[in-house]
Design a protein around this nucleic acid. Structure first.
Lengths: 168, 168
DNA sequence: CTCGCTTAGTTGTTGGTACAACTTTTTGTC
DNA sequence: GACAAAAAGTTGTACCAACAACTAAGCGAG
């Protein structure tokens, strides 16, 4: 990166400090809530959510790793743990002997559905209810702009809301 | 936390996904840049910045842990590593036999000063230059509101800019 | 068809963080 | 002033993620 500017203005520093506080503390807060109330990490929640969203609730490891911004080794171990707990099932792909298909089990779906309300409540408590509608919209805009720089393909996507009781 | 609302609207889901993308990817991007260009983690950078900011460039472990949002065990090990590299020096406090004072060494200050330009450039490239001034201000406002919920004491504070060449 | 290359996934090893146990020093109370 | 309780750090242990090495399966050129 060949950018100039070796300095920050006072306003930029204040913004940066505030932003760092959020990006450091928010993931920790989400992890803590899910760990405490649903005995799963935020990343496991994301994996289950992605499977729930996927067609027929299954996906290939490679695609799932891509969608969750995980490396394949990381996803492999997480799925191994989730499988031990009975939340997912792994099976070789019938069409490609190299590929592994991960499927959300009934128990996994149930665990996800149990976890959603507390997670959504936390999202409201920490972020959504803290801001006015215009502030919320501004935050969304800013996050999208920054997100496009961090993840140009916008591959890292999942929607909590679809993992709700009653869907499917 | 006794909040209701087990659902998100479509707008809220979109916001949340965008926000998650940022809070997941931004720390990783900052870590990667610092690791690559200055052979230090973002957290080590924060520790050094805090010491640079501190009066006489030294601080007690407990206070430093507080300011950097670290547990004492974590800070203890990080300081041990930084001391091995010659960036800080640890010594028992003369006034309290329990306390350890960490001091930024000349080499540590030099390493920090070397690291700052690239880090600030990254902050500009990923966030500051990506947004218009009003967007930037709105992001700052939102971050502050959320930050106050996550960290009511606002203890997690440091200012990159003061770790600039020429100061002190 | 077969041999080199690529792709998908798992596993070995290392590094970093959390939680808990432990040591040492201070403080408060009688 | 001695002893119980608290505080400051360090270290043992366990878990999680990154990187690299490895295995197995498809793919492509000859």
């Amino acid at each position: 990166m060949n950018y100039r500017v070796p300095r920050m203005t006072a306003e930029e520093s204040a913004l940066w400090t505030g932003l760092m506080r959020v990006v450091e503390l928010l993931p920790a807060a989400l992890d803590a809530q899910l760990q405490r109330d649903a005995q799963m990490t935020h990343f496991e929640f994301i994996v289950l959510s992605n499977l729930q969203l996927a067609d027929e609730s299954h996906a290939q490891m490679r695609d799932l790793a891509h969608a969750t911004n995980a490396t394949l080794p990381r996803l492999s171990r997480v799925c191994a743990r989730l499988e031990e707990r009975g939340f997912v099932k792994r099976a070789p792909s019938p069409t490609d002997g190299r590929a592994t298909l991960v499927t959300l089990t009934k128990a996994g779906r149930a665990a996800l559905i149990r976890a959603v309300p507390g997670h959504v409540a936390t999202a409201h408590a920490l972020v959504i209810d803290a801001l006015t509608p215009p502030q919320l919209e501004a935050l969304g805009t800013a996050a999208n702009v920054i997100g496009r720089r961090l993840d140009p393909d916008q591959r890292f996507v999942w929607i909590d809301d679809d993992a709700r009781p009653g869907s499917v």
